[in-house]
Nucleic acid binder design. Structure first.
Lengths: 150, 150
DNA sequence: TGATGTCAGTTCCTTTTTGGAACTATGCTT
DNA sequence: AAGCATAGTTCCAAAAAGGAACTGACATCA
């Protein structure tokens, strides 16, 4: 498999990674979820080089994950916002945060906790099945490859 | 920020991506979750170049996500298995699958469905808070940066 | 008026990473 | 003896990322 073919692969993992599976994209999206919208701000925060950032934003726009809005005419200025498709990536981000918090040691100065906006209590994200309400672990699940009639 | 510094960043997203945030790593782990254990098999399935695969496996072993087991002495042969830390990545993988299935169109020949091993029914993974049982969306959550006393 | 600053990029060049193919080493099978 | 299997390594070319400077349209400051 070649990187450029991931987007049309039968496997959803491959297709997903064709959009978010590179060094910087999820960090860009993290900033979007934190409310960062502008090029300069992202570049300052991420330390990514400008043309790589421009390229990623273009690709995310093409993929329908971000929308590029003009917020001022003269001179023309743009900001990037998550679309619904982008917002739908939140579980991926949260799962990653939960994993990293437990499995990749933080430097001892800072860390981040997710809090319920309602109660202010820390949340503990787990994956459940919407139908049964039961927790999902890799032991409970198999994968079926569906061949559609052609 | 530089790529090599991600691993010690205060942000768990950055730390997580320092382990799994490159082009191929999650595809390698997908195969591991599917029961693939050997170098040749992974290389055949992924089409990744051999030295990149060797490098990723080494890094995943160093990160404690995979364990390299010798399964035969003469000649020495090894296989790679998920550790508990690796298995803990399952929610990230499932969230990605769920997102891609809905948001990155598949070619019309095949797709993959996750099934409950118990009931055989398709599962519909959602993220919930283990404490309250409520569904987690990005509107319900804020992030707190914890400064520990030094 | 000129100098400086902001924003959203682009351009140019260097360094790093990846791709592609061949090669190594050890034993097993025909 | 000639392949085959496994788990890599080595070498070179191509692609991607890093770094720094530059552009263009405006605003602000002195």
């Amino acid at each position: 498999m070649k990187w450029d073919d991931l987007g049309t692969d039968a496997c959803p993992v491959a297709r997903g990674l064709s959009v978010i599976g590179d060094r910087w994209t999820m960090l860009v999206l993290r900033d979007c979820f934190l409310g960062i919208r502008r090029f300069e701000q992202m570049q300052d925060r991420l330390g990514i080089t400008r043309h790589v950032l421009a390229d990623r934003l273009r690709k995310l726009e093409t993929a329908g994950v971000l929308r590029r809005d003009q917020y001022q005419d003269r001179p023309p200025r743009f900001e990037y916002r998550l679309t619904d498709r982008g917002k739908a990536l939140y579980p991926v981000l949260v799962s990653l945060i939960a994993w990293a918090d437990e499995n990749v040691p933080a430097p001892d100065t800072t860390a981040i906790t997710l809090l319920s906006r309602e109660t202010g209590e820390p949340i503990q994200p787990i994956l459940t099945d919407a139908r049964t309400g039961k927790r999902i672990t890799h032991r409970d699940v198999t994968a079926r490859r569906n061949l559609r009639p052609s």
